[in-house]
Amino acid sequence: MPTSPRLRSCVLAAVAAIAAPAAAVAQTGTPAGEVNVYTYREAKLVAPLFEAFTKDTGIKVNTISASSGLEQRIATEGANSPADVLLTVDIGRLKEAVDRGVAQPITSEVLDKVVPAQYRDPNRLWYAVSARARVVYASKARVAQNEITYEELADPKWKGRVCIRSGQNIYNNALFAAVIAHLGEAKAEEWLKGLKANLAQKPSGGDREVARDIAAGKCDIGVGNTYYWALMSEREPDKKAWAEATKVILPTFKGAGTHMNISGVILAKHAPNKANGLKLIEWLVGEQAQKIYADMNFEYPIRPGVTAHPVISGYGELAADPLPIATIAENKKAAATLVDKVGFDN
């Protein structure tokens, strides 16, 4: 028997009433499953990202954070590891993960389209999701120049005027590895000796302390990551004076560009939630996540077309070194050996 228009309307309304709560539940994340992330990022830095991901996809994000040893942990856990994704803050961590055999190749047209070739593994075992530059902090009062090369840091004119954290720190290790890639190991050793001769004090502290010591007049220039200066300037009132006493100079290698490092991800070899892990990784290079990286974490977006935070853009136009990150990673062991050979931290 044909139904009346009124009856059809009632039926459709009832279906809609049932479907609406179901859609709302999907947004909460319960039916969509979960993804387990091992991360070197501070919880407060990744929380906005993961909260937005869950809101968009309904996938719950479980995190385990540590300052070291996550690659070893995944390897030890073996096939029973709950890890789906490893999120790192340095190319060295990614290389170690690959060397330990805990990564699996990622097949993704999205990642290949968005992430520039120099910021991904040739074998697709890792991809960058954001970038930072290793730059020079300089005294506003005592340093007039606004341009400098990495090679110039070893110039005797800076004798007794340079501050830096340990040469074995992961960020300095990556920079020194880039020096080896550009100059060759022999010239890199001479450069490192020259840089050591210019130190005002024993390498110590972190990048923030480099700015502190410049502000205090203990040295005139130092080396730090782009985002630390922005954090001091915008988010850390007790350190704002250190930023105000210094300026950021974007150094370059002669004939090349500014040294870059990355935050990157791998998909764990035994990921129990592989599909959700891949979905998270692809989401991290999307416009929303890239904007969060830029505005919340003061990092350079990997995705073309997403602009850096105004404070970061205020450092000047970035001419990123085209040297592939994977090439830098191959020189990290040699860089660590040179640091010990020249007694850089002594």
Rank of each mutant, 00 (worst) to 15 (best):
G343A: 10
R165Q: 15
I170H: 15
M296A: 15
R165T: 13
K113I: 08
Q288K: 14
F253G: 11
A197S: 13
A133H: 00
V143C: 10
G194F: 05
S81G: 06
I170R: 11
A216M: 13
E96V: 06
R73P: 02
R134C: 14
G206E: 14
L111V: 07
G29H: 07
K60Q: 08
S204E: 15
V162M: 07
P251G: 10
A43E: 14
N297K: 05
A268V: 06
V37D: 01
Q201C: 04
P301S: 04
C163P: 03
A308Y: 02
S108P: 09
D345H: 01
E190M: 02
P2K: 13
T107G: 15
E34A: 13
L49I: 12
G78E: 09
V102W: 02
K279R: 14
V285L: 03
H182S: 10
Y119K: 03
Y38D: 08
P310L: 06
G29L: 07
A47Y: 02
N36G: 05
V223L: 15
G92L: 04
L199D: 08
S4E: 11
E244F: 03
C219G: 08
Q72M: 07
A211M: 15
T57Q: 00
P116S: 04
P2C: 06
V35I: 03
N331L: 11
S108M: 10
I328K: 01
K95S: 09
F253Y: 15
S67M: 14
I281Y: 05
A230I: 02
I266V: 11
P122T: 12
G255A: 13
A97R: 02
P272L: 04
A17E: 05
K254A: 13
I328Q: 03
R212Q: 15
A22W: 01
G58D: 09
F53P: 06
P31D: 11
A133K: 01
E282F: 07
Q72H: 10
E42R: 09
Y127S: 10
P322A: 14
A177I: 09
G314E: 10
V129S: 00
G167Q: 12
V129Y: 00
A103K: 03
F298N: 06
E317L: 00
D84Y: 05
F53E: 08
L183W: 06
G33S: 12
A294C: 04
W191E: 03
D112G: 11
N80K: 14
S139Y: 07
A79V: 12
T54S: 14
A20E: 02
S68N: 09
R73W: 07
A319D: 10
D220Q: 10
A103Y: 01
L192M: 14
L284N: 07
I325G: 06
R120E: 11
L49E: 08
L87V: 11
A131D: 15
V110M: 08
R142P: 06
G305Q: 00
P251L: 12
Y40C: 00
I106E: 07
P48R: 03
K341Y: 02
A43Y: 09
P251N: 12
N173P: 09
T3Y: 11
V342T: 05
H309P: 11
V110C: 02
A117D: 15
L250S: 02
D90T: 08
K44W: 12
I325N: 10
F253C: 14
A14E: 10
A256V: 00
